[in-house]
Structures are given as structure tokens and as C-alpha cells.
Simulated scan of single mutants.
Amino acid sequence: MIDRNAKLPEDDRGATVFSVDPLIVKEHYEADYYHSYAQDSEFFRALGRGVLLGSECKRCRVRYATPRAHCMRCGGRTEWFQLPPRGRVHTFTTCYFGSEEFLNETPYNLVMVEFDGVDTLFLGRLVGASTEDIYVGMPVRARFRRLQRFRVTDVYFVPE
């Protein structure tokens, strides 16, 4: 049976608006989330040692700047290799809105970093440069949080 008068339940709560242009609203979200890094565990453990790891396919030799257990080209198993600590900005964007964790840090810059001898790019934050100072080809180097959180944000980049 179809009920053409059906409605979602509503209450008297509305949104708290902080800005109209761009629109920024307050929304509370909180949950404990347990997850496993499984085959990517070594990548996150290495960040705590100040090491950035990539994955290399032993069959076709494609080198990935991000962790993956199997090659996206041929399906072969990959092995870890250490990425160089220095790279270059391939492209970038400035984020004016972020998740709850990053909302107080907006605006912030994200960069896709290219490394010599690596076939794909690594996404990370660029700290220490304003948007006007960032350019394609800009030399950057990896830095690591002093206190590890076991998140991809444990590594970030700074201008070289």
C-alpha cells in the first residue's frame, strides 16, 4: 500500500549557522570506531618511525606511493619499499571546509606529491606555505607527528 501522506519524523531542532557564504553549519557527530589496518598495518607503524612506505608490484614493477596489497595493473602481490623523504607538488587545493577534526584549521592546503621513481602520487597536507606561495613543482619534504595517532595525517609535508 502506498501512503502519499508519509512524512519523516521531525523535531524542533534546527541548524546553527555560522556563515552564509560559504554556508557553514554546526552539526554534532561522535562515535567510537574500531577498525583494522590489516595488510596496511606496516604503513602506519612505519609512520611512527618517521618512514614513509610505498608498495611495489614484484611482477610488473609498478611503484605505488600509497599502500596496496595487490597491483592495480596486473593483480600481483606488492612489497613495501621506502619512499624518499623529498618530493614535488604535482597539484594542490585549498580546503575551506573540513571534517569535524579539521574544521578549526580551515583553510588548509592539500597537495598531491610526486616522488622520483614512483608511478603514483601521495595525498597529504602542506604546512608552512600560504596558498599564494604554492606552485606545481614546488619541492617539499615529509615530516611526521611527534606523537603518533596511527592515521594518515601522521605524515605531512613542508616546503623544502
Rank of each mutant, 00 (worst) to 15 (best):
V152P: 04
D11W: 03
V140Q: 12
F92Q: 02
G75P: 12
C74E: 07
G50C: 09
K7I: 12
R61Q: 13
P107R: 01
Y33E: 12
R68L: 14
L52R: 01
E160Q: 04
D11G: 09
V20R: 15
R63E: 11
H70M: 15
G14C: 06
A6D: 14
T93S: 15
P22K: 02
V51A: 02
F115T: 04
G50N: 08
D154N: 15
T131A: 08
E30D: 10
R146Q: 09
S41F: 13
I24S: 11
G50Y: 10
V51T: 03
Q39R: 09
T66M: 09
S99H: 08
H28P: 07
D12V: 13
N109K: 05
M1H: 06
A65E: 04
F43C: 04
V25I: 14
T153Q: 08
T120V: 13
E100A: 15
Q148L: 12
P139L: 10
A38Q: 12
Q148P: 07
R88M: 04
D119W: 02
M72C: 11
Y64V: 05
G137W: 04
E132G: 06
V62S: 08
L121C: 02
P22F: 01
F122E: 08
G87T: 00
G117F: 01
L121T: 02
G128I: 11
R61M: 07
S99I: 10
R146I: 03
E42A: 15
N109T: 13
R77I: 07
L121I: 05
F122M: 14
K26S: 14
P107F: 00
V155K: 04
E56S: 07
R59H: 11
T91C: 14
V17D: 05
D119L: 02
D133N: 05
V136F: 02
R4Y: 10
D119H: 07
T16G: 00
E160T: 02
C60I: 08
P22W: 02
E101W: 13
V152C: 12
V20N: 13
G54C: 10
N109R: 06
Q148D: 01
V17T: 14
A15R: 11
Y156D: 01
P85M: 06
V127G: 03
F122V: 08
F102M: 09
V140F: 11
R143C: 15
S41K: 15
Y156S: 03
D154S: 14
M112H: 11
A6E: 13
S99M: 09
S55R: 00
M1W: 05
K7L: 14
L47D: 01
L147P: 01
V111E: 04
